[in-house]
Amino acid sequence: MNAFIAELLGTAIIIAFGNGVVANVVLQKTKGNNGGLIAITFGWSMAVFIGVYIAAASSGAHLNSAVTIGLAALGKFEWSLVPTYLLAQLLGAMLGQLVVFIMYKDHFNSSEGLAQRVCFCTDPAIRNPTQNFITEFLATMIFMIAVLFITKGEHALGSFDALPVALVVLGIGLSFGGPTGYAINPARDLGPRIMHAILPMKNKADTDWGYAWVPIAGPILGALAAGFIFSAI
């Protein structure tokens, strides 16, 4: 139960801060409107730092469905615990998105549909599902390899692993965030996408379920590939 709560709370914190900075930059009439990609990437890295630091001691701070599945495939995590972690991450992502929605409700209603949706879930700059999938696959593979080395045995820092992991997320966003918005986490996209479908907003666009498989399949397969590479080194 402690691990479940830690995964739920940590993921909620990540989404609240992460999609909160997206809302601040993208939505109309906010103080941070048009703040740009740099603001978003720094906001997301701080989100990951806080979430990982909070959850590390109780759950290992996966906070990412691809990480959980990748660690289980590597034999570093019990498969029997995977459903519990995935559920906690999904519910946490939904809760974090609800916080963003409550805080920015007037700004959501003052913005057009696509701007609203990108504050919930990822949307590609150029829609090409095959290429978008490759981007998410490679970005997550790089992220997962970095995380595996950061948390490796003799070099692990415990809760302070949050800082290098956050810096990896910053680097991923700055270097590879342009094509798809770098989901690199199925729960990060799916939970808020569900909330987008549920929550009432003026001028709301469709939830774009046709694209939803990309930020789910790409990160999961990327994490599995990272595990294979890591185990071979």
Rank of each mutant, 00 (worst) to 15 (best):
F101L: 09
L81Q: 14
Y104C: 07
V118D: 00
A115R: 08
W44L: 06
G51C: 01
V67R: 02
E112F: 02
M94C: 15
S45D: 08
L91H: 10
V48N: 03
H107D: 12
A57V: 01
S111D: 04
Q97I: 08
S110R: 11
V67I: 11
T68W: 06
A66L: 02
S111I: 02
L114N: 08
T84A: 11
A72H: 11
D106S: 15
S58W: 02
H62Q: 07
S45A: 13
F49H: 00
S65Y: 00
A57M: 01
L86R: 12
W79H: 10
S45Y: 07
C119P: 10
Q89E: 13
A72E: 15
Y104N: 15
P83Q: 14
T84V: 08
S80N: 13
D106G: 10
A57Q: 07
N64V: 04
L90K: 13
V100G: 13
G70W: 05
S110F: 03
G60C: 03
S58T: 02
L98K: 07
V67Y: 06
Y53M: 02
I102G: 12
Q89T: 07
L114E: 10
L86V: 13
Y85E: 04
G43T: 04
G60N: 07
G96W: 10
L71F: 12
V48R: 02
L81H: 09
G43Q: 02
A93I: 05
S65M: 13
S58R: 07
G92K: 12
G96F: 08
L95Q: 15
Q97M: 15
Y85H: 13
G60A: 03
H107K: 14
L90D: 12
A57T: 07
V52R: 00
L87T: 14
D123A: 08
S110K: 13
C119I: 00
S59V: 03
